[in-house]
Each structure stands twice: as C-alpha cells, then as structure tokens.
C-alpha cells in the first residue's frame, strides 16, 4: 500500500470543523469515492473533528491518500493531546455521552467508514484513524 499524498490541518476552532469537512469532501471526490461513501466519510469527519475540539481541546487532522493495487482510499487521523478516554468500552456504546451530545459521535462515525481504529488512555490523548476505500 502506497501513500500518494498527505497533509495536516489544525482543528482548534468551530470554523475548522467546516473547513475540514470541505477539504475532506474534495479529497474524497479526487479519490473517486461514490457520493454515498463521500457523504459518510465527511459526516464521520464532522463528528470526530467536533469530538476532538470539545473533548480533546482541539488537535490535528492528518490525511493520506492511499493506493492499494487498483483501489484508492483516504485515511484520516485525528490526534489530540487531551485527557484521553478512561473507559473506551463505555465511550463506544451507542447513546452514551460524557458531555451534552447525543452519544453518536464515536459509534456513529465507526459505522460510516470501512476501517476505524482508536488508541487512547487517560492523560495520553486520543488518536483515531478512519479509512474509506473507493
């Protein structure tokens, strides 16, 4: 698997969430993702970028364009150095929220993409990687 292109953008304000959605939509289009796959990816980006801002105090969004044989994909990594998630199993339960959200951010985002990976520990920040293939 090759990385064809990559970049990083900060998520520190609410406006950055909107800009991240627009940037990821463009990348997904360039990758040849179909409209539904694009929409799912952009929605997942919106959920995870907001989570990172609200719970992680902001962080970085790193994107990679992948090529694996004939298929192309886009991987997006959200990394923050916030408090981390103490009980990951609980956080990955539909409807559970530590804030005032709907509790759909993490679990919903996971359902919207082909691959989802999360690394977190209390005091260690959170790193979430999602991948959508064409």
């Amino acid at each position: 698997m090759n990385i064809k292109d990559q970049g990083t953008r900060p998520i520190v304000t609410e406006q950055d969430i909107v800009l991240a959605r627009q940037a990821c939509r463009k990348l997904a289009q360039d990758c040849g993702l179909r409209l539904v796959a694009q929409t799912k990816l952009v929605t997942a980006v919106s959920e995870l970028a907001r989570n990172m801002l609200v719970y992680g105090g902001g962080g970085d969004l790193h994107w990679e364009i992948l090529e694996d044989g004939l298929r192309k994909g886009i991987r997006i990594i959200f990394h923050d150095e916030g408090p981390g998630i103490a009980d990951l199993q609980l956080a990955m339960t539909d409807g559970w929220t530590s804030g005032n959200g709907l509790g759909l951010g993490l679990t919903g985002a996971k359902r919207l993409v082909n691959e989802f990976d999360i690394e977190t520990a209390p005091g260690q920040g959170t790193r979430i990687s999602i991948t959508q293939w064409s």
Binding site: L35, V36, Q38, T39, K40, T43, E47, D94, L102, L104, T107, G108, A109, R111, L112
Partner: peptide, 14 residues
C-alpha cells in the same frame, strides 16, 4: 433531504 444524506443519517443512528 438528499438521498446520500438520508442513508448516512440512518447509518449514523439518527
């Protein structure tokens, strides 16, 4: 609501 948005919303659980 656009069809792709509707599909995504249902999958999201909303």
């Amino acid at each position: 609501m656009q069809p792709a948005v509707a599909i995504t919303l249902v999958e999201l659980g909303l």
